[in-house]
Amino acid sequence: MARARVRLNRRGVGELLRSPQVEADMLRRANAIKATAVGMSPVGEAARDPHPGQYKASWHTSSTRRGGRRRDRATATVYNTAPHARFVEYGTERVHAHHVLLRAAQAGGG
């Protein structure tokens, strides 16, 4: 039986990884994760929370064709700009960690 051989063109693979189509798909996936994160974001009670809903309203996405450790591929990022986002995600000694972004990414955005 004959064996199939594949020879990859490194330049072609690089162009594929940086293509607008791959960037668009990465952004689509990031937006799905963002939607899941918004859905599971905690909202404090107005009586006890000085900024209720700020965390939930602060989710964003961005994309680039020059991402990754070597800047050689399209990537997309989901992030939260609320000043207290890190404490919601990881918790403090008084507040338990919610791990909203972690759980949204594990769910794959839906």
Rank of each mutant, 00 (worst) to 15 (best):
A82L: 06
H99L: 14
S62P: 07
Q106Y: 14
H99K: 15
Y55M: 04
E15F: 08
G67R: 03
V22F: 02
R86W: 12
P83E: 09
T61S: 03
G109W: 10
A30P: 04
L102V: 13
L101K: 02
P52F: 02
G53K: 02
Y79K: 04
G91K: 04
V38F: 13
R103N: 14
R7T: 13
Y55S: 02
R103H: 15
A37V: 04
V6N: 02
S41I: 06
F87W: 14
D49E: 04
L102H: 15
R71M: 08
E93W: 12
E45C: 00
V13C: 02
P83Y: 09
E93G: 07
R29V: 00
S62K: 12
G12R: 14
A57H: 11
E23D: 01
S63Y: 03
N9K: 09
V22G: 04
H98E: 09
V95A: 15
A2C: 02
D25L: 06
G108W: 10
F87K: 01
M1G: 13
V95K: 13
T64S: 05
G44T: 03
M1S: 12
A2E: 13
W59Y: 06
V13Q: 00
G108E: 05
A107D: 08
R5H: 07
R86M: 11
R71H: 11
P83D: 13
M40R: 13
M26L: 07
Q106A: 13
H99V: 00
T77G: 00
V88E: 07
Q54P: 00
A85I: 07
L8V: 12
Q106T: 10
T77N: 01
R69M: 02
G68Y: 07
S41Y: 09
D72G: 10
R70F: 14
A97V: 11
R94S: 12
V100D: 04
E89P: 04
P20A: 10
W59H: 04
L102G: 08
A74N: 05
T64Y: 00
G108H: 10
V43G: 07
Q54C: 01
A46W: 00
R86C: 03
R70Y: 14
V100E: 07
L17Q: 10
K34Y: 07
V38L: 13
V95N: 14
Q21P: 02
I33H: 07
L102M: 12
G12I: 06
R71L: 12
V38Q: 15
R73P: 05
S63W: 04
A82V: 05
V95E: 15
M26A: 12
Y90F: 15
Y90Q: 05
